[in-house]
Design a protein around this nucleic acid. Structure first.
Length: 292
DNA sequence: CGTGTTTGACCCGCGC
DNA sequence: GCGCGGGTCAAACACG
């Protein structure tokens, strides 16, 4: 609110990392990293051209110099070919507020609150019983001309609100899976209308439903994440981030040539992440997830 | 008819 | 306590 760039992010404890600076937004100006890398599936047909990822527990700054278009429906190949350059990743997985929100709050509460409602339940009582839960959130800043980016999940719009200090309304979506409590908000940046800020809240308890052409992870690429889809819904959210970074690492190491550069703000681009470097992955990627 | 969107009303948290 | 603003609900509506 005090920051016109993200008007409402500052008043939410979940956004403390995000609002520290602009770089906290994982804004990838020209990169081709796909949301599929983070268990979100974004086909090129969705119309987006540039993406950014903001796990609320990760502070990341990136730079990349590729302008190649995103190949449609080829998440794995495009991801492998993507020029992913991680310049700075500071892990905050020990964020007390984040840990609290994920561990002590029952993600099913939102859905059960409505599912358990009987038709004769007075509206007020419903509302009272329904505690407003904040789950961990992360946002994508996406340069796109379409608001609702396709990410492999089906979303049902349940609200739209005008946002103060922004000329663009904010749309509210929730996953159409009745047992899934994931929500997302979509709004355009008031500063740069070409940028769509998509904020995800919660974790999907199911796989993607919409894409016959791929899903989250390609079948030919065995992935640790798939094996964890059997887990109950309330996965620790940082698992996504672990996976995120793991993906980035794998992609980087698979790249024959990686750009190295120094960002404008002085961050030195790191073209690969050595899993042996405990400084980063030691904190966030379990040994079992690392490549030998 | 099923599914998704629109939109006004309502609720809630927070700052003053 | 009050007002503001964000978030949600739910009826009406649109669409395939």
């Amino acid at each position: 609110m005090n920051d016109p760039k993200d008007p409402d992010l500052s008043n939410d404890s979940a956004w403390r990392e995000l609002t520290a600076s602009d770089s906290d937004f994982f804004y990838r100006d020209t990169s081709n990293i796909l949301l599929s890398d983070f268990a979100w599936n974004l086909p090129a047909s969705s119309g987006f051209t540039q993406t950014a990822v903001v796990p609320s527990s990760i502070t990341t700054t990136t730079t990349s110099k590729t302008d190649q278009p995103i190949p449609p429906s080829s998440c794995s190949s495009s991801a492998a070919a993507a020029s992913v350059t991680v310049t700075e990743v500071s892990t905050n997985f020990n964020n007390p507020s984040a840990a609290t929100s994920s561990s002590s709050e029952d993600p099913t509460e939102n859905s059960t609150a409505s599912a358990a409602q009987t038709p004769e339940t007075p509206k007020k009582e419903k509302k009272k019983a329904q505690k407003r839960i904040r789950q961990q959130r992360f946002a994508f800043m996406t340069k796109s001309d379409v608001d609702n980016l396709e990410d492999g999940y089906r979303w049902r719009k349940y609200g739209q609100k005008a946002v103060k200090n922004s000329q663009f309304p904010r749309s509210y979506y929730r996953c159409t899976n009745t047992r899934c409590t994931v929500k997302k908000r979509v709004e355009r940046s008031s500063e740069d209308p070409s940028i769509v800020i998509t904020t995800y809240e919660g974790q999907h308890c199911h796989q993607t439903v919409g894409f016959p052409r791929g899903g989250i992870f390609p079948a030919h690429e065995p992935h640790n994440f798939t094996s964890h889809h059997h887990l109950p819904p309330p996965l620790p959210n940082h698992y996504y981030y672990q996976e995120l970074l793991h993906q980035i690492h794998r992609e980087n190491t698979s790249l024959p040539q990686l750009p190295q550069s120094t960002t404008e703000d002085g961050h030195v681009a790191v073209s690969s992440i050595n899993p042996s470097e405990e400084g980063l992955l030691g904190d966030i990627v379990p040994q079992t997830m690392r490549n030998p």
